[in-house]
Every structure is written in C-alpha cells, then in structure tokens.
Design a binder for these strands. Structure first.
Lengths: 339, 339
DNA sequence: TTGTACGCGTTATCAT
DNA sequence: ATGATAACGCGTACAA
C-alpha cells in the first residue's frame, strides 16, 4: 500500500506551487492552458485525489449531505428505498456524497452529525407529528430539510423547511374514487398499529382528510388499523367484508400482503370489492390485480427535496415553508365501475 | 448561527492547554481527576464537539465505513433495507457512521471513496460473478469486505474477504423439501431477467446447487425466470402449472407478488401446489399463506460482516477467505405433506 | 497569470 | 501529569 499522493506532490511533479494545484481544481482563478495541462497530467500520473478531511477543514464544507432516518424498519418499505436512492443519486449529480444516519438516537443524532461537521446539510425523514428534531434543527450551523412536517410547522411564523407528498389531497382522491364507484361505505385499512405508534406525521394528515372527504359526500367512513400478522389480518378482513353492505377499501400500507389476503379468501379486487391504495406506482402495478392508486411519489419528493436543499446551501436564511407534491390518481383494475 | 467551538476554546475555558483537551477525549494518557473535571465542564458548557474533518486529517481515520451498492432498485427490496440498517446499527455501536454510496459508477466509486479518504473501510454489496471491484479493492489503502463473492474468490490464492449466506446449501434444503413432499418435478421461479442480467453472483451459485440437488435424487428440475410484470407472470404460471404433473415450486424473489398471483388464479399454496421460497423470514411469515422458507439472513450476514470488518481495521493484512452463514429451513403452511 | 504564507482543528512528539 | 510545538493536506488572502 503505497503512500497516498497529496496536492503538494502534484505541485512538485507539475513544477508549480501547491496553491496552483488547488486553483486548477476549484477553477476560482484563471489558469493558463499550459499550467493546467501540466497540473492535470501530474494528477493523472499520480492518481491524485484530494483528501476529504483536509478539504472539509480548510474549505468549511464536506460535500456530504446526511439523511437522518430513525429506523429503517421492514415495514412499509416500498417507499424508503426509493427515497434514499433518489436522494443519493441527486446528490451525486452535484458531487455530494450521502451519510446515512439511521440510529434510533433521535434528536441527538442531528446534533452530533451537525456539530461534528460531518455534513453540509441534512434531510430529516420519518418526521413525527411532534418531533424533537424540529426544535433542534433551528440551532444548527447547517440547513436542514424535513420530508414530512410536524404539527408545529403549521403554526404562524414557521421557520422549518418541509416538503412532502400531499397526503391530504391523496386521501380525497381515493375516497372520491370509491364514492364515484358507488361504494356504500368506505373502510380505510390504515397503517399498522406499529406505524401509528411511531407517531408518523402523515397518518393523521391522511386520516383527517379522508374523513372530511367522506363526510362531504355523506359517505360513512371507518378507519381500521390493518395488522401485519396474516392471521390477524384475515380476521380483520372477515369482519370488514362480512357485513350487510360491501364497503370500498382504501389501503395505505402493506398493499401486496392485503391484496394477497383478499385473493386468498376468494375476494377479487375489481370484481367482488372495490379497492384503491396509497402506494408507489410500482407496487400498484405489480399486483396480481393491478390496483388503482395514488402514488406517494417518493422519487419526485426526493428530487425536489434535494433541489431545495442545495438552494438552501447558497441561501441558508431562506424562510420556513411547507411544499406539497401534488397527488394524482391512476386507475387500474381494482375498481368495478370507474365512471 | 453562533460560531462552533473548537478544542482551543475548550482549553481556554478550562484553563489548560489544547493538547490536554485532546488527551481527555482520547484517554491516551493519564489525566488528573481535577483537570478532567475542568475540561469536561468546559466541553459541556460550550457544547463542544470535535470537528470530524480535522480529526480525519490529523488522526488518519474517519470513523466512517462506506457501503458501496450499485443500485438500490425497487426489486427484491426485502433484504437490502435489512442489510443497510443492520450494518449502520452495528457501526454505530462502535462509534462509526455510514457513508452510503449507491451510484452506478461501478469500480470508480470504490476508488473515489477510498482515494479521498472518505472512510476507513468499506462493505461492497451486490457483488457480480465477474466484478471489477475485486481487482480494484486490492489496491486500496483501506480494507474492504464483500457481501457475496465473485468467481475469482474461488481461485487458489484468493485475497478477497467475502461473506455471504450459503445460497448453495439453501438451494439443497429447498429442493430437498419438495422432494420429501413427493413433488414429481421442481420448477424454480428464479430471479427476474433484470436481476439475472445484472450478473449478481448468488444466482448461478443457487442455480447450480439446486440443479445438483435435484439430480442427486433423480428429480427433474426446470429453471424459469419469473417476470416482474403481473401479466407475464400470469402467463408463466399458467404454462408451469397446466402440465400433466403438478410441479413443486421454488421461489427466489418477488415472493408476495407470486403468492398473490397463485391465489389470484385459485391455486393455493399448501393445498393445490407445494411452494417453498428463499426470502426473509418476515416475508415468508407475512403472506396470506405463510411460506416454508430458507431465510437469507440479511441481519446475520450484516452483523458478522461488520464484526469482521472491524477486525480488519486492526489487522489489515488478514488473509482472503470466504465465510458462509449457514442455511436453515423453516416449515410453514405452503407444502402439503412435510413428512 | 502565478507563488508565498497562513489558517482550519486535531493528533503526536518532545519537553518539562 | 501537563504544556509547547510541529505536522496533517488543502483553500485562499495577499503579493508579485
């Protein structure tokens, strides 16, 4: 394992000063074509790469953004991977790397990652309705962006930057679709008790909007937390589907498992029951009976989040704001009479 | 945003020299109880946190490990999250953070991350049967550990450190289970063409072992790549299940979708067809009909990988080796006569 | 257009 | 047991 070359080595080989090497890399001052050649050749020859730590120290920037996500649980996994992948991809386009902070340390993670100058900015995920990290983020030297928003972001004088899919509008569209299909009642098979217990912000957002949308058209709506366990799920479905009327179903999580459970009991979406779901298009499309869905748009949300985050790097004083990615519904084969 | 305190500030407040502050943190030399108090109080008061870049520069270590993963696709997602989460968790236990490198840049990612001293070690995932990164990893200043192994790791004089689930033994167990259940034939609904095209190392490993195990008991085995698209999948299932004999099925990927497709056509695992799967226990357990499976053990593999990696940090000259995590089969409800 | 010189915050060496 | 002091590798004012 040979010694790693430094910019000083490059300078020596190129016959220029170390600072010139620096300026060739940053482009922050004009360089003659000749010296540029010299320097670039030397870099090539030595396989030079700048030392990230030294850069961070001298330049006050790490070229790293952190993704802060409390738990990467196995549940509702569809989205998370897409979020992370898209954030990482977008970051790399700008020559940034991604530090993934998944520890269940809560707000102290934020403080640590920021305080040690491990990153230039952070994306905060899995935001709770009440979230410690909101308060903490204000005191940090680096800007942060929330995917989702805590309740306090709704208060006047909000200073948090939040972006998320428009769960409220999504709920309206889904309930509306079932209403239009003539469902006599709506049952939302909502996020599992485990997810609800985590206090994730979008659950109440979705729930309130669904409720309101149903009320607006005089449709009874029942909210049932769908259990993960297949046996318990079977019991729940039995209870929901054995009544005098056949309700339309809204799924919000665990779509493959629930569709499977329905098929397993001989209830086919689009034939025996109307089903719509909140999930990624990939999930909706991949089911044995493709499911009419509102996409949670993880990649869109992530892309816009990173764009915004890089604007914040240039203008850290930008005001707080909540941005919502619009919801759209895609009709597939799981609803009987879609108009 | 106030200025960030440095160890020099701490020293000033504590009334000691800056180097003493360093030694209080590292414990690399004896400190009197009195000064320790002084310094720790000052740190507390200033909310001091060491600057990661400065540390990396001076101390030649980043306290970061990189996870290098070409693409975080949406497919076969079950495992990846668990891998990453477990690696991150284990790393944090040792006060390390995780840099997630997902770019499709191939071997250049490895070179970049290592060359810039962005990490002290790396975990290489999604290993191909022929993988550029094997060659590259040898020339790096930091040790690396492969999850999975390229073909060349089997050659004598192997210098790569590889760990993986024992896909070969897994295949044997799954085929054996179907044989014991009296299946007249085995059809493996293998990884989708997309995954196969990526050349992931474990596909041929699994395939060869499955083939061998079937031959050993005189069982015909057919390998069919299961398409992602539900319509194409339906066609494939029809073709597979409409023959004169009813084969036992081995699933290797997309378990929820395939189970769903089976139920959708009225073919119930454990009643109409014998089904076994290679997947996580969570996935197997969560299906409408829980599936007899061999678990891919992502968390075990990750835990052992990180343990090994930290040993390599102390002993970078450790020899190449392939370590396999043993396979075990869990019987559930998807096979008719399991003994 | 280029070179000199200093600072970034830590760790390590050498004194005391 | 503690304090000076010199690297560490790079960015950037300041000079030329």
């Amino acid at each position: 394992m040979a010694r790693v070359p430094t910019s000083k080595d490059v300078a020596k080989v190129a016959g220029v000063s170390q600072s010139t090497v620096s300026y060739v890399m940053s482009g922050k001052r004009p360089i003659s074509e000749k010296t540029r050649r010299l320097v670039e050749d030397a870099m090539e020859q030595l396989l030079y790469q700048p030392h990230a730590g030294a850069r961070a120290l001298a330049g006050q920037r790490t070229n790293i953004i952190a993704i802060v996500h409390p738990v990467l649980s196995n549940f509702g996994v569809g989205g998370i991977m897409a979020f992370i992948d898209e954030i990482a991809t977008q970051a790399r386009r700008r020559d940034y790397d991604v530090l993934l902070v998944t520890a269940a340390e809560g707000e102290s993670s934020l403080r640590r990652v920021a305080g040690r100058a491990l990153c230039d900015a952070m994306v905060v995920m899995e935001v709770k309705a009440e979230d410690d990290r909101a308060e903490v983020s204000r005191g940090l030297a680096q800007p942060s962006l929330f995917i989702g928003y805590p309740d306090e972001a709704l208060l006047p004088g909000n200073t948090l930057r939040c972006i998320d899919f428009d769960f409220g509008r999504g709920a309206e569209l889904l309930v509306g679709e079932l209403a239009a299909a003539g469902a006599p009642e709506v049952v939302v098979l909502g996020w599992s008790p485990e997810v609800v217990a985590r206090g994730v912000n979008y659950v109440p957002r979705f729930r309130r909007a669904a409720q309101a949308a149903a009320s607006a058209v005089g449709l009874p709506l029942r909210w049932v937390e769908a259990p993960r366990d297949p046996v318990a799920l079977g019991v729940t479905l039995e209870e929901v589907l054995s009544g005098p009327v056949r309700p339309g179903l809204v799924l919000t999580d665990g779509v493959p498992e629930i569709v499977s459970a329905l098929l397993g009991r001989g209830t086919r979406p689009g034939r025996d029951v109307d089903v719509v779901a909140l999930c990624t298009d990939g999930e909706a499309q991949g089911q044995a009976v493709p499911v009419t869905n509102v996409s949670t748009q993880p990649r869109d949300v992530s892309r816009r989040a990173v764009e915004w985050l890089f604007e914040l790097l240039d203008d850290p004083a930008a005001p707080g704001e909540i941005r919502l990615v619009p919801a759209t519904l895609v009709r597939r084969r799981s609803v009987r009479s879609a108009h």
